[in-house]
Amino acid sequence: MAQPQLDVFQVIADPSRRYMLQLLSQQSLTINSLAENFDMSRPAVSKHIKVLHAAGFISIHDIGRERHCTLKREGFTELQQWISFFDKFWITKLKKLESILNQKAN
């Protein structure tokens, strides 16, 4: 049952999973209606959905007999955290370089 947890980047490296996220960004869909967009077996679709779910990209709700998938935002924030972290990192480092070079005589 437990499968290795993939990180955000591994999750969205797969084109099918990216397309699933795109479809879900427009509306919530049942697994069946999602599967109609793909030329792959239903178990293969389910497997991708499990991966998206495990990584926090989507949530799944059982309504009647149908499983509804909805986009979640947790998975997307990690990347933004990285970019803003390194933006601050470089600003700090570049200030240091600037002060070193500006003190240096020509």
Binding site: L21, Q22, L79
Partner: peptide, 11 residues
């Protein structure tokens, strides 16, 4: 080249 950034807009 941050892999995955194409989804930030969508998000």
């Amino acid at each position: 080249g941050f892999k995955g950034t194409e989804h930030i807009n969508m998000f």
